[in-house]
Simulated assay, not measured.
Amino acid sequence: MAPKSLKLNHTCLRVKDPKASVEFYTSKFGFQLLEHKKFPDMKFDLYFLAYPHKDAEGASLPFGREGVLELTHNYGTENDPGFKINNGNVEPHRGFGHICVSVDNIEVACDELEKQGVKFQKKLTDGRQKNIAFALDPDGYWVELIENGIGKQDGKTDVSSYRLNHTMIRVKDAQRSIRFYREVLGMKLLSTSEHPNAEFTLYFLGFNDDDSFVENSLTREEQAALEGVLELTWNWGTEKDEGFKYHNGNAQPQGYGHIGISTDDAESYCANIVAKFGDEVQWNLKYDAGKLKNIAFVRDPDDYSIEILATKPKL
């Protein structure tokens, strides 16, 4: 049985210029900077941002809650005019798709972002889907906007209702990936959205410690109010192409880094995965084996990295 303390804690994105990125997410989207961790010996810094709403358990703790955005800055990239982040949506390096922020009133939120000069990949009025939009951050990452309706008022938007709702990655074989996230990591299937005309299916997963929860049962409205959701996008037929492969974000050109899972006893959680699945599961880093202690990195079927870390790391 999966530990009840499991959380989809964070999503890591590499950024070129941390000043521009932190300013974007705080001033435009209302995130708050929880912590700035410096690693000068390894020449990178980490910035942890989140929405400090009252429903967030451990709201001020970077690893004790869901809905955290981790921005990774490798020193010097901001001074390299030729350096460019891979946003995961351009061939031949597609893989990661977007992060998603859910808001109380999507029309007003999008209008305010436009007034602040935020560029959009897709506005509400573009395309068939009139209930979603995609903003662009300074590195060209896509930020989806959906509506959660929390405390919605006409003509207004309140950032206290905003949630870092989900992270989307594309997967080659949906059933293989769902098995990994459910059986190996302990997530539950929250909902499924099938789009036969466009030949793709979306699977939404997350941790849920309610023993009575019925999988694949959440409505769009219920799901939009959450944080810590993983969206798997499966384009039909990719599983039949032996040579097909998605870009994992950590090979060159880099961009997306990983999702991070936190739990009270990360060491035991990792040990149980090894004991149950053995060589079937591949690791980039076994628990506590690297320079940075109290963490591990496991790989999913598409070679995306998942960090596993303790809710309260040992000193």
Rank of each mutant, 00 (worst) to 15 (best):
R182E: 15
T157Q: 09
M187R: 03
W234S: 10
Y256N: 01
T233L: 09
E147S: 11
G243L: 03
I150N: 03
G255T: 09
Y162N: 12
N250F: 08
T192F: 11
G237M: 06
K240V: 04
I150R: 07
N250I: 10
G151Y: 03
L226A: 01
G243V: 00
Y246I: 00
H166R: 02
L190K: 12
I146P: 01
Y203K: 01
Q254L: 08
T238N: 14
H247A: 06
F213A: 02
L218T: 09
V159W: 08
N248C: 04
Q175C: 02
A174L: 14
R220C: 02
L230Y: 06
A198M: 14
D241S: 03
T238G: 01
L164Y: 11
M168W: 01
F213C: 00
K240I: 01
N250H: 04
I150E: 14
L205C: 08
I146S: 10
G186L: 09
F204K: 09
D211T: 12
W234A: 11
I178N: 08
F244K: 01
K240T: 14
V229F: 04
G151E: 12
Q254Y: 11
E242N: 08
Y141S: 00
G206I: 01
N250L: 10
V184M: 10
Q153C: 04
W236Y: 11
E231A: 02
G257L: 04
A251V: 05
A224G: 08
D154A: 15
R182N: 14
E221V: 06
E222R: 04
S217Y: 14
L202K: 07
E227Q: 11
D173M: 03
D158S: 12
G151P: 00
N197G: 15
H258L: 05
H166D: 05
H258E: 14
Y162C: 00
S161Q: 13
R179I: 00
S193C: 00
L190W: 07
V229T: 05
V214Q: 15
L189Y: 11
E183G: 06
D154G: 06
V184A: 12
Y162D: 05
Q175H: 15
A174C: 05
G149E: 11
D158G: 05
E194W: 00
N165M: 03
L145T: 06
F213K: 02
G186M: 10
M168L: 06
K152E: 15
L205I: 07
F207K: 00
P196H: 09
L226S: 10
M187W: 10
G186I: 08
K188S: 14
Y141I: 00
L230Q: 04
K188T: 12
S160F: 06
L190V: 00
K152T: 10
H258M: 08
R170V: 00
T192I: 14
S161H: 15
S191W: 09
E227L: 01
N248H: 04
Y162G: 01
E199S: 14
N165S: 04
K188W: 07
Q175E: 15
S193K: 13
E231S: 03
E239Y: 07
Y162A: 05
N248I: 02
